Amino acid sequence: MPLSSIDRYLHQPPPANLQGWAHGCLEFLYFGIKEARACLFAGLFFASVLLVPKSGWLGIARYDLLFLIAIAIQLGMLWSKLETLDELKAVALFHVAGFALEVFKVSGSIQSWAYPDAAYTKFWGVPLFSGFMYASVGSYIIQAWRLFDLRIRHHPSYWMATLIAILIYVNFFSHHYIGDYRWYLAACALGLYARATVQFRTWHTTRSMPLFLAFILIGFFIWLAENLGTFFGIWRYPNQIGAWSAVHVSKWSSWSLLVIMSFTIIANLKHIKQDIHIPD
């Protein structure tokens, strides 16, 4: 069965006459399946990160192979109509923004982290596959939006949401020179999205949660994925050179802010704007 058919089934599941705990268990099951499906790109990509040996395969360096795998996954999703061309453009924007950030962070004057392996697809110290780690966040949001039939209530005006997203991105660069203002930006974002809620449908019941809480939860799972990436030596922070240690929990806040930026890009796609309510 093609994945597009599975998506249609998940989006419009058949009715079932269930009550009580049986209904709750089925709701939870559908929630888990939809989450796993929304993580398809991220799941396949990070599975490759864990499975590709450090020495590479068939003479292809690990970073080069990961780049080829990421391209294949992306093309496969486009070919199977799991992503549209407009969505691919948004994912590509994440890739470019993420790669630019990576180049800055590994530069000689900053050295926030490093990619230790050699590769042909490595430029300015950054392998090209790294941009797909940021693109996977955008891919997840796009897929979850469709599968859970998301609706956003009380979204802030677009100009304010765009402004805070730009400031978040700029702070990733500027905090090395003029101070880290992430908590000020987080406070502004909290005020901006304080009334915003996300409505989602797991099975036949529509539920809701604060949108800002969703940003925090997604950021937490990205932080867990980052710990796996550093554990397997894909990249390393300076304190992980001698022996691995967990990524500092402060990175959780950075990832949550990045999710806000990613969400803003997705929210500005024309076909998604109709699912967002902006109060007058």
Rank of each mutant, 00 (worst) to 15 (best):
P14K: 14
S157M: 04
A42N: 12
V91S: 08
I272R: 15
A90G: 12
I222N: 04
A36S: 12
H248V: 11
Q19I: 02
A42L: 14
W21V: 06
V249C: 08
L224R: 10
I222H: 03
A42H: 14
Y184R: 02
P116H: 11
M1P: 01
R236D: 00
V126F: 09
I178K: 05
A70E: 00
A144H: 07
V91E: 01
L217E: 11
A119T: 05
M1Q: 03
V106T: 12
S130H: 00
P116E: 01
Y140H: 12
G76I: 09
K54V: 11
I241Y: 14
Y63V: 05
A72H: 10
A214D: 03
Q143Y: 02
S107I: 02
A16W: 10
F99L: 14
S262L: 01
L185R: 06
A47C: 15
F41R: 07
E87Q: 15
H271L: 03
H154Y: 07
W21F: 13
M133Q: 04
F123N: 02
L269I: 14
L51G: 08
E83P: 04
I6A: 10
A61P: 01
V249R: 05
L147Y: 06
R146W: 06
G125M: 03
R146L: 01
F200T: 03
S48M: 10
D117S: 07
H11W: 03
G59I: 09
I60E: 13
S245P: 02
C39T: 05
I73S: 04
F94C: 13
N227V: 05
A38L: 04
L78A: 11
I260H: 11
L26V: 09
G108Q: 13
S174E: 02
V52N: 10
T264S: 13
L257N: 07
A36I: 12
M261A: 15
G125L: 03
D86A: 14
T197K: 15
Q240F: 10
Y181R: 11
T197H: 14
N239A: 10
M133T: 05
I166M: 08
